[in-house]
């Protein structure tokens, strides 16, 4: 520890915004070739919950049981929301609307700045990381998350009865931890998978290709509604979709919002709050003339 350490710009450890942030003083020091992003086509999403169950399987999510669920203590990183049209009809005439909601991995994440111990940070591949070891459980991140997609370990689930009764613990994925009580957790974009894919690519001396990595939800999704990949790679499906929908990461208002009649359907939730989410949704389309 020296005075120079103390005077260093600590915020850089949190503040690498790879896209459109080249003016950032630390861009040179911390360049990145990867910005993970997602797009979810609500038109394809059928609300079947496969992604959510896949997430439980992949990410060691505890099943909390009826009582804790009733207290709002469920741990689903990926939750499917079901909305009805609010057109005052007696019966809905266009079905329901489904919205898979997961951590939006914001570029200017409201959760990151408020954590007192810096347990949630921005990684250089554009994710909000959550360092379970560092978390002290102040829950400020969740308080400041507009999407409420952070889930707190209200109990010590590994030792709670009927969460992982033997031999169910054998199913736990050893690539990531099982979280104990008192820490915050949330969707990681399947960090263990992206990490492996990056390592493999590095070993093979190449860049990450689209398709090298799939998140668990994406892999399960029966309708391919979810695409995930590197927004920096112009060949990736995600980059193409963002490009085509003219959605830009560091913007709180997109072409679609400013130009009426533009035939676009890509949007991000709560863009106006400027968290710059990494998840783009594509509007659900329903036939106009039936």
């Amino acid at each position: 520890m020296s005075v120079s350490n103390l005077l260093e710009n600590w915020s850089k450890f949190r503040h690498t915004h790879p896209v459109g942030d080249k003016g950032h003083p630390d861009w040179e020091a911390y360049p990145s070739e990867i910005k993970w992003a997602m797009s979810i086509d609500l038109d394809a999403c059928t609300g079947c919950n496969a992604c959510s169950v896949a997430c439980y399987a992949e990410n060691n999510l505890p099943v909390v049981g009826k009582e804790k669920y009733s207290h709002g203590q469920a741990m689903h990183w990926m939750r499917i929301e079901r909305y009805w049209d609010e057109d005052k009809r007696e019966v809905p005439n266009q079905g329901a609307q489904f919205l898979p909601m997961l951590c939006q991995q914001c570029e200017a994440a409201p959760c990151e700045t408020v954590c007192p111990v810096g347990a949630t940070n921005h990684t250089e591949d554009g994710l909000n990381s959550q360092i379970y070891n560092r978390c002290i459980g102040s829950r400020y991140c969740s308080a400041n998350c507009p999407y409420k997609v952070r889930y707190f370990n209200w109990y010590d689930y590994p030792t709670t009865e009927n969460v992982w009764p033997a031999p169910m613990e054998q199913q736990l994925n050893p690539d990531l931890t099982v979280r104990g009580k008192g820490v915050m957790e949330k969707c990681t974009f399947c960090k263990q998978r992206t990490y492996t894919a990056r390592n493999n690519a590095k070993t093979e001396g190449r860049k990450i290709h689209d398709g090298d990595v799939q998140t668990a939800c994406q892999q399960a999704c029966p309708t391919n509604a979810i695409s995930f990949g590197n927004l920096f790679d112009p060949e990736s499906r995600v980059a193409k979709q963002w490009e085509q929908q003219q959605v830009e990461l560091i913007k709180e208002e997109q072409e679609k919002d400013v130009k009426p009649g533009n035939n676009l359907r890509g949007y991000r939730i709560f863009e106006e709050l400027r968290p710059y989410p990494s998840v783009m949704y594509l509007e659900r389309v329903r036939e106009s003339d039936v």
Binding site: Q73, W154, Y155
Partner: peptide, 15 residues
């Protein structure tokens, strides 16, 4: 001993 859950806190009522 039990965890913060016994306080009846939840998502979204984290505080």
């Amino acid at each position: 001993q039990m965890g913060m859950g016994v306080a009846g806190l939840n998502n979204p009522n984290v505080w």
